[in-house]
């Protein structure tokens, strides 16, 4: 039971990672792998600020801003210095490793005895409610951000962002500086990813320099599961619904992780299970159409 609740809470916290990857991968068509660094950046900055006694809400906000800046760095290297997109992400991600160590001053920071956004729930008498409270908070946050993003991508600015990923020639002809759009977009994506790192650290009760390693695949997994789900509902275009599916994808994926651990596999086996699972999810739509005898 605890395990399931834990999986749901973490799934919701990691949903922001999925949404961030969704923005770069699906909206901007950009393979951003800054995530490994920016998720840890969110976690480590939150840990350092909370330990210094900063208000938890401010710490979360600061983490998002830091993530945004990390993303703009990747975007600027890609657009202004004309470095390959993947490489731009790798460069920033690598640099962030040192930055994150500097921020924490060590490789791991416990958050057991400091005040976090989840501290108010610790005093709830009812044990079930105490476990449910963080889930409700995360659910509220996820819902708020999905609503916000849904609104954002319907504004004139948001339409221009989507068109930048969809057809750069067209949107440049409408007078949009596409470089600037990409930098802002990758920034927003990494702000969400850093938020994810911040929430995960506070929920788990520690930030660790390794918490982001390979995390990009988790994000990809939620996006791909999300797309498959949205496809089942025949939804290929509406962003709000696609984001909800990404969040569900993130929770399902955490469930799978929990299940893997509960059948006795070692945590170190998680990465290969993840990789195989992601591969299967990618193959699923192809397998379905193959069964129906349709050429792809």
């Amino acid at each position: 039971m605890e395990l399931t609740f834990g999986a749901i809470a973490l799934g919701l916290a990691y949903a922001f990672l999925g949404m961030g990857i969704f923005i770069t991968m699906r909206i901007f068509n950009f393979p951003d792998i800054t995530a490994d660094g920016s998720l840890t950046l969110g976690g480590s900055l939150t840990a350092a600020l909370l330990t210094a006694g900063v208000n938890p809400c401010l710490a979360v906000l600061a983490s998002m801003i830091a993530g945004f800046l990390a993303g703009t760095a990747t975007g600027a290297i890609y657009t202004k210095l004309k470095v390959n997109g993947l490489l731009s992400g790798i460069l920033v991600m690598t640099a962030l490793y040192s930055v994150n160590l500097r921020i924490m001053g060590r490789s791991n920071m416990p958050l057991i005895s400091v005040r976090t956004i989840l501290s108010p729930f610790a005093d709830i008498a009812d044990p079930t409610l105490r476990i449910l409270a963080p889930i409700l908070l995360f659910l509220l946050l996820v819902a708020a951000f999905i609503l916000f993003l849904r609104w954002l991508f319907r504004t004139d600015f948001g339409l221009a962002m989507r068109a930048t990923g969809d057809n750069e020639v067209m949107i440049a002809a409408q007078g949009v500086a596409t470089d600037r759009m990409k930098i802002i977009g990758i920034g927003c994506s990494n702000a969400l990813i850093a938020l994810s790192g911040s929430l995960v650290a506070q929920y788990q009760g520690f930030a660790d320099i390794g918490m982001g390693i390979g995390i990009i695949v988790f994000g990809l997994a939620s996006v791909i599961i999300g797309d498959t789900l949205a496809g089942l509902f025949g939804e290929r275009f509406r962003i709000g619904i696609r984001l909800i599916c990404v969040a569900i994808g993130s929770i399902l994926f955490r469930g799978l992780v929990a299940a893997t651990l509960s059948i006795g596999l070692n945590p170190t086996d998680l990465k290969i299970v993840t990789a195989i699972f992601v591969l299967l999810t990618i193959m699923l739509p192809q397998a379905r159409s193959a069964l129906r005898g349709k050429p792809r």
């Binding site: 068109a163 057809n167 067209m170 002809a173 007078g175 275009f237």
Partner: peptide, 27 residues
Amino acid sequence: SGTAPTMTIAENLRLASLRGIPKRLSI
């Protein structure tokens, strides 16, 4: 080349009616 394929006709037309003027953060 001239249109954004995943966006609706209306969305494409809206962007075109803003050609050369700032795209603001409002619906």
